[in-house]
């Protein structure tokens, strides 16, 4: 090795040592502020995710209320009540899963309104037949499927993406039942949702 090469290596080693030391010193001084900033940013993102999920909980509360209204209307035949209760049960599971997620994110899950509130929102007074109930259910389930798909992009916690995608698929499955019940034209163009 030539002297020139040795010197160059020493210079590089020394520089590297200094750089590492400098970096350590910098890191030591910068970490608390950086960590605070990261924590603040994470807390903000979690808070935003909780707000978005709370809107989804409100949607689930409304769906549960709508099926209560349907079951109490006397318009659903006995042969269909088990299926309606099963679908309502899915919405209750969604509500509970979303509420657990909101709590984990540090938020407070939104509470349900009264059945009278939902009856007013959904114009239940205009429901006079099973077909009216099926049409309302199709509208709500389709809307919910689209709403869940719309939540994927803004949610910052990627762990929540699967959760809302699963819920979108559930709602789409419910909607398909009512499309068939109502003998509606099955959409020819994909994607059907989103």
């Amino acid at each position: 090795m030539t002297e020139s090469n040795t010197n160059r290596r020493n210079i590089l080693t020394g520089a590297a040592t200094l750089s590492a030391g400098g970096l350590l010193a910098l890191a030591a001084s910068a970490t608390p502020a950086a960590a605070r900033s990261t924590r603040k940013s994470s807390a903000k993102a979690a808070g935003q995710d909780a707000e978005l999920l709370n809107a989804a909980i409100a949607l689930e509360h409304q769906g549960i209320g709508a099926y209560d209204i349907a079951l109490g209307s006397g318009l659903v035949p006995a042969s269909a009540t088990d299926l309606v209760k099963t679908i309502q049960g899915h919405h209750k599971q969604h509500r509970d899963d979303l509420a657990a997620a909101v709590t984990r994110l540090g938020g407070k899950p939104v509470e349900s309104k009264t059945i009278a509130d939902y009856a007013k929102e959904l114009n239940a007074a205009s429901i006079t037949s099973l077909t009216d109930i099926q049409r309302l259910a199709l509208r709500l389930e389709t809307g919910a499927a689209n709403a869940y798909l719309g939540l994927i992009a803004p949610l910052s916690d990627s762990g929540l993406h699967l959760l809302v995608a699963q819920m979108a698929a559930d709602e789409a499955s419910h909607a398909a039942i009512f499309i068939l019940d109502l003998k509606e034209a099955y959409p020819a163009k994909a994607p059907l949702y989103g």
Partner: peptide, 17 residues
């Protein structure tokens, strides 16, 4: 385009890109 970007903390998430 992005509700949370315009008003951070909003409950509306649906975006039309």
């Amino acid at each position: 385009k992005s509700p949370p970007k315009l008003v951070p903390g909003t409950r509306m998430g649906l975006q039309l890109p």
